[in-house]
Design a protein around this nucleic acid. Structure first.
Length: 357
DNA sequence: AACTTCTGCAACCGCTACCGA
DNA sequence: CTCGGTAGCGGTTGCAGAAGT
């Protein structure tokens, strides 16, 4: 079977500055499918790899001189995708030669893993994802690949860039080092709760949509929307746990709620399956399962927020006292991506934080 | 309109770990 | 055990579009 891949039109990659070659998403998906039927192609691949290895030494010097660098072209992308679709990935140097790409194996590997791989997710990070990144970074530091492993479809490069461009920018706005205790406190007590709230709100909206689809015409589903003070209480309560930071407490809550759906945007389409559209028992069971998970999550959140611990409030007060008013307000507003200024101010003025107690 | 500065991201570089001969 | 090749990781750079002047 010979697969011919056509170049795709630019797929509107959000946030991209470099125009670059369009991402052949559909082609990459087709590539995945092609990889399923591989045995014969695999054998050919092995032979080609051996041949490529054999020829490698002689051509190495001259090839070195004409190796391409810089942005990948559409043709190069398609060549790589086609080759991997037929032969699989691995042994990148030999692959690069066998595929006829004038690139280093390193470059091919990077291009494939960070851009062409069919399951790579593009676009802005969801609140859930941001929360997870903050949490994991607080635990593991700059272990980007390890962090990326916890975010399906995200690459270490993407997360690294996110950290450098967004997080470090905010640390700069706050006039402190990204590794300073002050910034970490700001992350724990302001940014992460806010992300948790947004994530919860997204979950809330998502579940309401799903419920509306399931109970068409029925009563509106009542859900518990977790609030900033609730999240803060959760964080403080969980500081009692020996090996769990407040950060992990929030993440636990939010990721638990999303355990049945990696991200809200991702899961919406899947979950909003119309009832009675020819679905069988499996679909019904799946919906029941999702319903069950939603309600158990809401219940868990309520339980977490039920008990409060006054001791930890002092920490928050101390933190508030340490931060200059204008710094805090400006900085908090700095995190207002996608939120109207009014909303942000309302959510995060010092008065409001104070009232949360 | 022209120029400069800022921003975000893809790609590269250097290093280390791992593995097989 | 050593050595060479490869994969993978984290840090850095370069570039193009956006924003500002």
């Amino acid at each position: 079977m010979e697969m011919v891949l056509q170049p795709q039109r630019a797929a509107g990659i959000s946030g991209g500055c470099r125009p670059g070659p369009p991402r052949p998403a559909a082609a990459a998906t087709a590539a995945t499918a092609a990889m399923m039927a591989m045995p014969r192609a695999k054998r050919e691949h092995e032979e080609m790899m051996e041949a490529a290895d054999g020829a490698a030494a002689e051509v190495e010097v001259e090839a070195e001189a004409e190796l391409r660098r810089g942005p990948w072209t559409v043709d190069e992308d398609l060549t790589l995708i086609n080759y991997i679709a037929e032969h699989g990935e691995g042994r990148w140097n030999a692959l690069a030669r066998a595929a006829g790409l004038k690139r280093t194996g390193k470059s091919c590997r990077l291009r494939w893993l960070n851009y062409l791989r069919p399951d790579v997710k593009r676009g802005d990070f969801t609140a859930d994802e941001q929360l997870l990144i903050l949490d994991l970074h607080s635990r593991w530091g700059n272990r980007w690949s390890k962090i990326a492993a916890q975010l399906p479809g995200r690459t270490d490069n993407e997360i690294k860039n996110y950290w450098r461009t967004r997080v470090q920018k905010h640390a700069k706005q706050l006039n402190c080092d990204v590794n300073s205790a002050r910034f970490k406190d700001a992350m724990r007590f302001l940014w992460m709760p806010r992300l948790a709230e947004r994530a919860a709100a997204a979950q809330h909206q998502h579940h309401q949509q799903a419920a509306a689809a399931i109970v068409s015409g029925g009563a509106a589903v009542s859900t518990t929307l977790i609030t900033v003070p609730e999240v803060m209480t959760m964080m403080m309560n969980n500081e009692n746990d020996d090996d769990r930071s407040p950060c992990s407490a929030v993440t636990t809550a939010t990721t638990t709620s999303s355990s049945s759906s990696h991200t809200s945007s991702e899961s919406t389409a899947r979950d909003a399956v119309p009832v009675g559209g020819g679905g069988g028992d499996d679909e019904w069971a799946a919906m029941q399962q999702q319903d069950q998970e939603f309600w158990s999550t809401a219940s868990a959140l309520q339980q977490l927020t039920a008990a409060g611990s006054g001791d930890h409030h002092h920490q928050l007060f101390q933190f508030q006292a340490d931060l200059p008013l204008q710094d805090l307000t400006g900085w908090v507003q700095g995190f207002s991506d996608g939120v109207s200024p009014e909303t942000t101010t309302q959510l995060w003025s010092l008065d409001d934080i104070w009232r949360m107690q």
